[in-house]
Design a protein around this nucleic acid. Structure first.
Lengths: 328, 328
DNA sequence: TTGTAAGCGTTATCAG
DNA sequence: CTGATAACGCTTACAA
C-alpha cells in the first residue's frame, strides 16, 4: 500500500503533474503557485504518506543530504559528544548523519573520504586522526562537498576548534599559582595540531613565569600512554606535577601515581584537558580545561549548512578540580 | 578530472560495454567472464579512480548500502560503544553507518524511522527509547529493510541483547552474599524491557533467598534520577544497599551518599549495571555487571548483513568492584 | 502558474 | 560471455 508510492501517484491523486508536486516540495520560492493546487498537493502527499526517495533525489541533484563526521573513535566521549552536536543540527535541517569512524587508522580514514565522494555528501566534519589526508580532502572539496575541519587545524581548510593555546596557558598559570614548580608535560602526538597548540600554551605560560618544564614527553592521547609515561616519571621522582594534553592521559597518570603510592595532589599534582563529561565523577575531581565538544559539533554543522565555512575559535574554561592543590 | 568519471568512461577505456563493467564490479558469480576482459576493466577502474555513485546504484537496486543505528543518545558511552560495533562490521562489508539519535524523543525516533524508509536503508539496528514505534517499525520491515532490535526486547522482532535477567540475578546474589539485607532497588523506566528484565532478575534472587527489597523505585536511566531517588533513601535511612538498574543511576547514588556523608561500602553498598567503560577509573571502583555493548553492536550488524536475524542473548559478567564489601 | 520531456548513473533483462 | 536497452524516481529547462 505504502512503501512504493512515487511522485506520480501523488500527482495523479492531486490532479497535477509530477513537476508541480516537486515544486511544492522544494518550495522554489521564486515560483509562485495557486494556493489551491498547493493545498491539493499537500493533501495528496499525506493521504498517501509520500516521502521522496533519497537516492532518486540525490542522483538528480548530484548531491545528497548527508552530513558526515569523520572521527578517530566514536566511543571516545569527547568525539561522541561532538558527533551529537553535528547530528542535532543536521536533523534540524533535514539532513542525515553518517558516522565515519577512522579507528585511528589513516587507511580507514582515506577509505571513508572516498566513500563520501561516492555518497556525494553535502558536507563533511573532518577530525583527522593525525596527519590529514590532503589529496583525499581536496578531491572531496573539488567534488563540491562542503568541508570543515573540527578540533584540529589543517592549513588551507576552515576549522572549528577550541582555544587550545589560551586554555592551556591558563591551566599552566593555575598550576604554577598552586606552587608546583617541577612540572612535567605529557603531550599528545606531535602530528596532531591540538596537541601542538596545547603544548605551545603550556610553554608560553612557563616562559612568562621564567620557569621551564622538567620534561616534555610525546605519546598517543590514551590512558595507557599516560600511565606508561607517568610510571617513568614517578621512578625518577624529580617532578611535583604532571600536566597532560588530555583527560585520558591524565587518568593514566592518576593510576600510575596510585600504583606508585604517591598522593595526589599533595605529592604530585595532576591536570588534564577536555573536561570529558564523566570526569566530574572522579574522586579526586580532575583539574582540567573544558573544551565545548558539543558546541564544536554544532558550530561545524551549522557552518556546513549555512554554506559559510570559516575559522572559529571557541572559548575554553578552567575547571579547578582537586588534583592540584592551591597553596599547598 | 576525477569526480565525474562514470561507468561509461571506464567501459570506453576498457573497450567493453557498461554492463560488463557493472558485472565485474558486482561479481555476478554465476556469470563467468574472460579473465582478460576482467583485468582490462579493473585496470581502467583504477586508472580512472572510478567509484560507482551510491545514489544511482541505490535507485536502480531499490536498496541502499546504509546501515542505521537508532539509539537514544550517542553521547552515552554505552550506546556509542554499541554504535562502534555496528560501524566496524558495516565498514568491513562495504556499508555506511547512519546515526539516528532519537534524543529520548519518541517523535524524533518516529521521524528517523521514516527517513530510513526514504533512505531505503539496507538494515536497521533499533534501540527504542521506550515504547517502540510499532507502526513505523513494521512499515520499515515491509519495505524490505532488515531489522534487528538491540539491547531491548520488542515482541515480534528479533533482538540481540545481553542476559539481563541472569546478570541481575547474579549481582543480587553477590550483594546478598556480602551481607547486605535491607536492599533498595532503583529500577529504570517501566517502559524499557531492559529495565524490567533487570528488575526481574533482582527479584528472583531475593525471592530465592527468602528476602525482599526494602523498596523499588522507577526513574529514568540517568545520574540525576539516581541522585534524587538516593537522597530520599538516605533520609529514610532504612537501607544498607542501593542496587541500580544501570551505572548512571549508580553514579548518582554514589554522589547522593557522599553528600549525605554516608560511607560506601561500609555504610551503604552500591551496585550498578553495564560496566560503562570509564567506570573502571572511579574510586571506589563500581561493583557492576558487564554488558558487552560493542559485541551487541557487532552481532546485530553481523546478523543484518548475513540476512539471518534471530534472537541472541549475550552473556554478562559480574564485576566485583569496591562499592560492595564482601564479609564486612 | 503549470505541464512536457529529458536525463542523472546504475543495473537487470534479454538477445546475440 | 558480452552488448544494447530500458527502467529506477526525481528535478529542471523549456514550452505553453
Amino acid at each position: 500500500m505504502d512503501g512504493k508510492v512515487t511522485i506520480r501517484e501523488v500527482a495523479a491523486l492531486a490532479g497535477v503533474s509530477p513537476s508541480t508536486v516537486s515544486r511544492v516540495l522544494n518550495g522554489n520560492h521564486r515560483q509562485h503557485m495557486t494556493p489551491t493546487t498547493r493545498d491539493r498537493v499537500y493533501a495528496a502527499i499525506d493521504a498517501l504518506r509520500y516521502t521522496p526517495l533519497s537516492s532518486a533525489r540525490s542522483l538528480r541533484r548530484q548531491r545528497s543530504h548527508v552530513l558526515a563526521v569523520v572521527l578517530p573513535d566514536i566511543s571516545n566521549p569527547f568525539f561522541s559528544l561532538l558527533a551529537r552536536g553535528v547530528e542535532s543540527v543536521a536533523f534540524g535541517q533535514g539532513c542525515s548523519t553518517m558516522i565515519c569512524n577512522s579507528d585511528h587508522s589513516l587507511d580507514k580514514e582515506r577509505h571513508y573520504l572516498e566513500i563520501l565522494l561516492a555518497e556525494q555528501a553535502l558536507g563533511v566534519v573532518y577530525i583527522p586522526t593525525s596527519t590529514p589526508d590532503e589529496p583525499g580532502l581536496s578531491r572531496l572539496a573539488r567534488s563540491g562537498a562542503r568541508l570543515v575541519v573540527a578540533d584540529r587545524f589543517v592549513p588551507g581548510f576552515p576549522s572549528v576548534r577550541a582555544d587550545n593555546v589560551g586554555g592551556s596557558r591558563a591551566l599552566a598559570e593555575y598550576v604554577l599559582s598552586c606552587g608546583y614548580r617541577r612540572i612535567a608535560y605529557l603531550a599528545g602526538p606531535e602530528t596532531v595540531s591540538t596537541a601542538r597548540e596545547r603544548l605551545q600554551g603550556f610553554r608560553e605560560a612557563l616562559d612568562a613565569a621564567g620557569a621551564c618544564p622538567v620534561t616534555v614527553k610525546h605519546g598517543p592521547f590514551t590512558c595507557e600512554a599516560g600511565y606508561e609515561l607517568s610510571i617513568e616519571l614517578a621512578r625518577s621522582a624529580r617532578v611535583d606535577a604532571i600536566v597532560t594534553a588530555n583527560d585520558m592521559m591524565a587518568l593514566g597518570a592518576l593510576r600510575a601515581l596510585e600504583d606508585a603510592n604517591i598522593p595526589v595532589p599533595n605529592g604530585v599534582g595532576v591536570a588534564g584537558f577536555d573536561h570529558t563529561p564523566w570526569t566530574t565523577y572522579l574522586r579526586p575531581q580532575l583539574t582540567t580545561v573544558e573544551v565545548p565538544a558539543l558546541q564544536i559539533g554544532e558550530v561545524a554543522a551549522g557552518q556546513l549548512l549555512s554554506e559559510a565555512t570559516e575559522d572559529a575559535c571557541l572559548p575554553t574554561r578552567l575547571i579547578e578540580g582537586e588534583t592540584c592543590l592551591r597553596c599547598r
